[in-house]
């Protein structure tokens, strides 16, 4: 009886262990990021990994490559953590299509995870943000090129343009002046594309960047960690479909207001336009 019991117990436990292991294996498959390289694509660590000086060289090669590109298009998906009042951390995502034509053309098409879309255009004279679902846009004049426009957009208008520094022609100087430490993490691959994984630290943000290996040192992925912010939230971006020789016409950067669209102010400008608006009413409507 004991023998039989042991055999039965053994069989049952074997079933349990196998099933549990199968479950664990499945769980691992689910949680493993799909951007990591498969073992077959990971370059073998036969050669010594680059030093910190070489890491800096890789970083600046990437930055210079982007800064010197006269035109490019790229698709970007990103997700970021937000800390709720309850203490719960949530992740939101969005998709962007960026078109850059130096020195004056910038177009950013954005779709947020809840479906809201926005279009940002800069043509060297005006910058415009358009919301198609509400058919409203804000526009302001800004001469000086992409660098000036991007800085004005963030610094003065307090608008949002993630990874805006990558769009600037002075990106190499920006990243170099902010970086306090830089490490070469590993040679890896993303979606089968061999790349260098670097980790840098600025005063307020720890960043990681995966740079494509070879003659086109493009960023494939960037992760930012806001180390001083509560909950240390992260911003994670993946880049797809880099094209450094796109055919783009100037009209792509010019905003033509759609029919029935309405111009509104940038929120940062409301405090300055409101007093000016204290004037004779042109029209007073009724209840909507």
């Amino acid at each position: 009886m004991i023998k039989t019991l042991q055999k039965g117990t053994r069989n049952a436990l074997c079933v349990a262990i196998l099933a549990t292991l199968a479950g664990c294996a499945e769980h691992q498959t689910v949680t493993q990021p799909d951007t990591w390289a498969s073992p077959a694509t990971v370059p073998q660590a036969a050669v010594p990994e680059p030093t910190e000086a070489e890491a800096k060289d890789l970083l600046l090669r990437m930055a210079n490559y982007l800064a010197q590109a006269q035109r490019f298009t790229v698709a970007m998906t990103d997700n970021y953590d937000t800390l709720q009042a309850s203490g719960q951390k949530l992740e939101f995502s969005e998709k962007r299509n960026l078109t850059v034509s130096r020195p004056n053309g910038l177009r950013v098409e954005l779709e947020e995870s809840h479906g809201e879309k926005h279009l940002f255009l800069y043509d060297g004279k005006d910058m415009t943000v358009f919301n198609p679902s509400q058919n409203v846009y804000a526009q302001t004049a800004k001469a000086g090129g992409i660098d000036e426009a991007v800085v004005y957009l963030l610094k003065d208008l307090h608008m949002r343009l993630p990874l805006a520094a990558l769009l600037l022609s002075r990106f190499p100087a920006e990243i170099e002046s902010r970086t306090q430490a830089l490490d070469y993490v590993e040679k890896t691959a993303i979606h089968g594309v061999p790349c260098h994984h670097l980790a840098g630290r600025t005063e307020t943000v720890d960043y990681q960047v995966w740079i494509q290996e070879g003659t086109q040192p493009l960023p494939l992925r960037i992760v930012l960690t806001y180390k001083n912010a509560e909950g240390q939230p992260q911003f994670r971006a993946q880049f797809f479909d880099w094209n450094l020789s796109p055919i783009v016409s100037d009209s792509k950067f010019v905003f033509t207001p759609p029919a029935e669209s309405r111009k509104i102010a940038f929120a940062a400008q409301v405090t300055s336009i409101a007093p000016a608006a204290i004037a004779t009413p042109e029209a007073i409507g009724g209840k909507q």
Binding site: D78, Y80, D81, T82, L83, Q84, A85, L90, F92, E112, L154, R160, L161, P162, L163, A164, A165, E174, I175, R178, T202, E203, T204, V205, Y207, L224, Y226, N228, A229, E230, P233, Q234, F235, A237
Partner: peptide, 18 residues
């Protein structure tokens, strides 16, 4: 739910501490 915060900026610097 809030969509805002430091990480939503996607910037290489943060004013969170400053």
């Amino acid at each position: 739910f809030s969509r805002g915060g430091a990480a939503a900026s996607g910037s290489f610097s943060s004013g969170a501490a400053r």
